[in-house]
Design a protein around this nucleic acid. Sequence first.
DNA 1: CCTGCCGCCTGCGCGC
DNA 2: TGCGCGCAGGCGGCAG
Length: 285
Amino acid sequence: MPELPEVEVVRTGLAEHVLERTIESVEVLHPRAIRRHVPGADDFSGRLRGARFTEASRRGKYLWLATDTGEAVLGHLGMSGQLLLQPEDAEDEAHLRVRVRFTDGGPQLRFVDQRTFGGLSVEELVDGLPAPITHIAPDPLGQDFAAAAVVTAMRGKRTELKRALLDQSLVSGIGNIYADEALWRARLHWSRPTERLTARQVNTVLEEVIAVMRDALHVGGTSFDSLYVNVNGESGYFERSLSVYGREGEHCARCTTVIRREPFMNRSSYFCPRCQSRPRKRKLG
DNA sequence: CCTGCCGCCTGCGCGC
DNA sequence: TGCGCGCAGGCGGCAG
């Protein structure tokens, strides 16, 4: 469940269910799930055994659980990852990758990931951030988000607007869905060159990113299928509120023009060709 | 330095 | 019915 609102739903669930619990054992069932943990599975399990989770945090699409040993389990859900709380006797999921048992004998924490693009690792905290994600920019729902600085940085890039929105080192947490939704709300075409946008236009699209993510968060995030669920396996309801994403051939809610899909970075961009007019080619010089 | 493209994985739905 | 293909919400690494 990869974009910010879905990851935040998971973080909230973890905060409710795993804090102040002590780890009895950690079982790695698929080595690829901990490939970012360089010292390997035994080290991963060994570092966590006996530790207690103290805090559940998130930046963009990364989340981490700090422990009383001063380290943290860093997680990314990739395209298909789930963190679930399951009773001891619940059958193993088909794509169960990592299992955490607690000394209290309560529900296990399970990392389930069909495509294994996601993963877990144990990391040192550097100024409160796991070391591998210091390059990830603050996300739009965070306290430390500075819109003016992001506007300046984006306008300094020579790329297309949607590429900039997906660039996690500029602003984090945005993925394909919320990029398309924010662009539609801001009435901007995905391929607008960033260096020709006004500060006001970039500000608008960032404000719409915040608005659409807040809306999604209020209904538990976006779920297209059973892969995208909270820690209790429940789906969010934002899918029904999407204005353009996945709606090729349907009518724009603002102007009734037919929504289009275009190939973009080996996936898709959805947009209203009338509300979001394509940038004109401009002569060089 | 910057930008853009590729590979990593599995499963599902569609058209033939 | 079966098969091949395109598609899927992401990222790091690397080439140019």
